[in-house]
């Protein structure tokens, strides 16, 4: 059940240039929040910026009744959010969406997990790793960034006790390259995930997700990806935040294009196997086999 709250901000820290860690009190939200879910946050009370901003849960503390966000300042909304002070009330809706699953589609618990994060995409992964470790899964974390100082909250990931491997584009820390390379090494090293109980989890920039999605499909390894898309409502009402998923339901040829003159993806869809799903409700986490990330 999702809540609409005015939640007091407890702390806000700039942990790296333009990257902030914000903790607020919301016991009722923390109680039901799952790793991979997000909140829809109002960045101030003016009409510009108008819309809320979706941000993942980076920390869920049920005992303290707090939630933590890790975000990068990219535009108007996040810039305003970063200026909010402890004691101010955060206007927030959540928890929203479908989070990560700790078991596979047919119910087997994930025994061995590889968790892959790139850039700010690491945000939702911390609570996932903690939950996986809690249920006794083996967890390897592959983190990537442009350079060493872009590796956000590295300490926190190391402190979970999970094994952490690092890649940076400039080689300033860990392997020179990107996380997809790490995953590839990991897969070709022969350390294959146990059939039937292994799973890859990924969050990061779209090109990285696409590569990982293709890699996992080729190796037939279960994958869960967390996607981003522009959001209006965040609750499933406006249909702004869609992504393509495979169709399994009947009548797949019935969704016809409304414009026969334009050879767009609409026309393609008429006889193809996909439909649109809402990232805010059916996602943000999707199974690799259901989502379509090819161009």
């Amino acid at each position: 059940m999702s809540l609409l709250c005015l939640a007091p901000i407890l702390t806000q820290h700039e942990i790296a240039p333009r990257h902030f860690l914000l903790t607020f009190r919301a016991p009722a939200m923390a109680k039901v929040a799952q790793p991979g879910q997000f909140v829809h946050v109002r960045c101030g009370d003016t009409l510009d910026p108008l819309l809320r901003r979706p941000l993942s849960l980076h920390g869920i503390d049920r005992t303290k009744g707090t939630l933590t966000l890790l975000y990068r300042v990219v535009g108007k909304g996040t810039a305003r959010l970063s200026r909010m002070q402890p004691g101010e009330a955060l206007d927030v809706i959540g928890p929203l969406g479908r989070g990560f699953s700790l078991s596979l589609p047919f119910g087997q618990v994930v025994n061995e997990a590889v968790v892959v994060g790139g850039g700010i995409g690491v945000a939702p992964l911390l609570p996932l790793i903690e939950a996986l470790l809690n249920q006794g899964s083996q967890v390897t974390v592959l983190l990537g960034a442009r350079s060493a100082d872009g590796l956000l909250g590295l300490k926190a990931f190391e402190q979970t006790g999970a094994r952490v491997e690092i890649a940076t584009d400039d080689g300033s820390l860990g392997v020179k390259g990107n996380v997809a390379d790490l995953l590839k090494n990991w897969l070709t090293r022969g350390t294959v995930l146990p059939a039937g109980s292994g799973c890859v989890y990924a969050c990061g920039p779209a090109p990285m997700l696409r590569t990982i999605w293709q890699m996992c499909a080729a190796h037939q390894i279960p994958l869960q990806v967390s996607l981003e898309e522009r959001m209006g409502c965040g609750v499933g009402a406006c249909l702004a935040c869609v992504c393509r998923v495979t169709r399994t339901d009947e009548g797949k040829n019935k969704e016809i294009s409304d414009d026969n003159n334009v050879k767009s993806s609409l026309a393609l869809a008429a006889d193809s196997d996909w439909k649109y799903a809402r990232v805010c409700v059916e996602g943000p986490v999707f199974w690799g086999e259901e989502v379509l990330l090819d161009e």
């Binding site: 702390t11 806000q12 820290h13 700039e14 942990i15 860690l21 903790t23 790793p35 980076h58 920390g59 869920i60 503390d61 049920r62 005992t63 933590t68 911390l126 609570p127 790793i129 903690e130 939950a131 809690n134 909250g153 300490k155 926190a156 402190q159």
Partner: peptide, 12 residues
Amino acid sequence: MSRVASFPGAKP
């Protein structure tokens, strides 16, 4: 359940 580690270099 998850916790948030403190970031040593972090300033308010």
